[in-house]
């Protein structure tokens, strides 16, 4: 089976490391990891991954701005917002802007992979809490 490609965007190298470790030996393959929103949009333009995992709270260009720019490049892209903040306001703002889903940190490896597997089955704009 061809692995589904994943791009991770988070200012925390720790989270990038953990996500890459979680997806090792799975049907998902991390093809790019970026710590800066602006740079991430440029990389997205080139590689067009199947799934984008995007941190909400980042210094510099925020997750929301990055989300809008990615959707402007490809309105059908599958962007999942990942954040420790899971308030209704935050979730609503992300989903109404066009994020496919919302995942609250922290999360376990098994729950994370199950979440990615179910992305296609989830209705557009859904929320998954920790």
């Amino acid at each position: 089976m061809t692995p589904r490609t994943v791009m991770t965007i988070d200012d925390s190298a720790a989270i990038l490391t953990i996500i890459a470790a979680y997806l090792e030996d799975s049907e998902f393959k991390v093809i790019a990891s970026e710590r800066d929103g602006r740079r991430a949009v440029e990389v997205f333009r080139e590689i067009r991954p199947d799934i984008v995992l995007l941190d909400l709270i980042m210094p510099g260009q925020s997750g929301m701005e990055t989300l809008s720019q990615i959707l402007a490049l490809d309105p059908d892209s599958c962007v999942v917002m990942v954040s420790s903040l899971g308030t209704e306001d935050a979730v609503h703002q992300c989903l109404s802007t066009g994020a496919r889903s919302f995942l609250q940190k922290p999360f376990s490896r098994d729950a994370f992979i199950e979440f990615l597997r179910n992305l296609d089955d989830q209705p557009q704009n859904s929320r998954v809490g920790s």
Partner: peptide, 12 residues
């Protein structure tokens, strides 16, 4: 990231 988890979860 530790304090980010604390802060974000606290707001939630």
């Amino acid at each position: 990231e530790l304090i980010n988890l604390i802060g974000g979860n606290a707001c939630t």
